[in-house]
Amino acid sequence: MDNLLFSVFPNENFIDLGLYQFGWEHCRPSHSFGPAVRNHYVFHYVISGAGTLVAENQKGTAHTYRLEKGQGFMLLPGQITTYTADKEFPWEYTWLEFDGLRAKEAVEAAGLHLGHPVYDAGCEELRDSMANEMLYIVQHAEQTPFHLIGHLYLFLDCLTRSSVSAKPRKSGRIRDFYIKESLSYIEQNFQSQISVEDMAAACGLNRSYFGKIFRDTVGCPPQEFLMKYRMTKAAELLKQTTLSISDIGNAVGYPNQLHFSRAFKNIYGVSPREWRRQNKIISTK
């Protein structure tokens, strides 16, 4: 189709920031998507035309926003949204779906949240650079994952610096130190039977306070992040080695193969064995 470009990112093993899908579309009049809920952050930038976004706020109340050329809108994880192209001047937009450890921080820095999902630019030059980074990713889907992730960082830099609702960075050095310490602890000990209490103790914090600052900064509870981190490592082993499912489970902290398979399927939607079948194993010879 001449009015649609769509790609799925080939690699999800990026912890800080990762791409999932991206594309461009010149919609038909009144073309609508939703109501739907996304698992990740999705940003749309309107290149031309117009349309409407209906999005729920923090209280679950739906609000309608009219958007035109030069504006954008962020769909947040778990938020119910519907967006519809204008019947006379249907919009043309490009979008990126992304997530990761630094995603929540970047989106909040741009001043975008459940109560304010619409992007307006305070600097046209940075806005245009942002749009160019988005289109570059869409038009160069064949490039390596590292290359595309680099342009995702450039996109987020332009987004946060150009947004008229951008928030000045708060001084959070102590909190950032605690999060860095906890992530380092997870990286070094994810193979063992560690708990949230262990993570908190490694930072010298009580469990309750540690859980709060971790969720506020990362966007999910520490136990959930630990499981996702382990499953990312498991996926790497499934793809790059010929180790048994049981051995891989042990290697990422799941001595019980049944518990490992359930956790893996919860993240990837299929069993470890099926995921390995769908993804080529790199030869170790």
Score class of each variant (00 low, 15 high):
Ser129Val: 12
Tyr209Ser: 15
Ala263Thr: 00
Ser283Pro: 08
Pro117Asp: 11
Lys69Asp: 08
Asn279Phe: 09
Tyr45Glu: 00
Lys280His: 11
Asn279Val: 10
Ala166Leu: 06
Leu154Asn: 09
Asp157Gly: 06
Arg277Tyr: 15
Gln71Gly: 09
Ser283Gln: 08
Ile213Trp: 13
Ala201Pro: 06
Met1Trp: 01
Ile213Val: 13
Lys239Ile: 10
Leu4Met: 09
Pro272Leu: 10
Tyr83Asn: 02
Leu17Tyr: 05
Asn3Arg: 00
Ile80Glu: 13
His26Gly: 01
Thr94His: 09
Asn189Asp: 03
Ser246Asp: 11
Ile186Val: 12
Thr52Cys: 02
Lys265Ile: 09
Thr217Asp: 06
Leu101Arg: 14
Thr84Pro: 05
Phe177Ile: 09
Trp24Ser: 05
Phe264Gln: 10
Glu197Ser: 13
Gly253Met: 02
Val218Trp: 11
Gln21Cys: 10
Ser48Gln: 05
Thr52Glu: 14
Gln139Thr: 06
Asp99Gln: 07
Ile248Pro: 14
Arg262Lys: 15
Val37Leu: 08
Val196Pro: 08
Val46Asp: 00
Gly111Asn: 02
His140Asn: 15
Gly23Arg: 09
Asn132Phe: 11
Arg273Tyr: 14
Glu142Pro: 06
Lys87Val: 06
Thr241Gly: 08
Glu97Phe: 07
Lys87His: 13
Ser195Asp: 01
Thr144Cys: 05
His26Asn: 02
Ser195Cys: 02
Gly23Val: 00
Ala235Trp: 02
Ala109Gly: 12
Val218Thr: 02
Ser30Asp: 03
Gln71Thr: 06
Phe73Asn: 01
Tyr254Arg: 00
Arg276His: 08
Pro272His: 15
Val196Ala: 13
Cys220Leu: 14
Pro145Ala: 10
Lys180Gly: 15
Lys170Tyr: 14
Arg230Trp: 06
His63Gly: 05
Ser195Thr: 15
Leu19Asn: 04
Thr64Ser: 13
Gly49Val: 01
Ser182Met: 03
Ala263Gln: 04
Tyr229Trp: 00
Leu159His: 04
Leu112Tyr: 08
Ala106Tyr: 10
Phe177Trp: 10
Arg262Phe: 13
Leu112Phe: 08
His40Pro: 02
Leu205Glu: 12
Leu75Tyr: 05
His63Met: 04
Pro90Glu: 02
Ser32Val: 04
Ile80Gln: 11
Tyr268His: 07
Ile15Pro: 03
Arg66Leu: 11
Phe210Ala: 03
Ser261Trp: 02
Pro77Glu: 06
Pro255Ser: 08
Asp16Ala: 13
Thr160Lys: 11
Asn39Arg: 04
Val46Ala: 01
Ile179Asp: 12
Arg161Ala: 09
Pro77Asn: 01
Glu12Thr: 09
His113Leu: 03
Gly249Trp: 04
Lys212Thr: 14
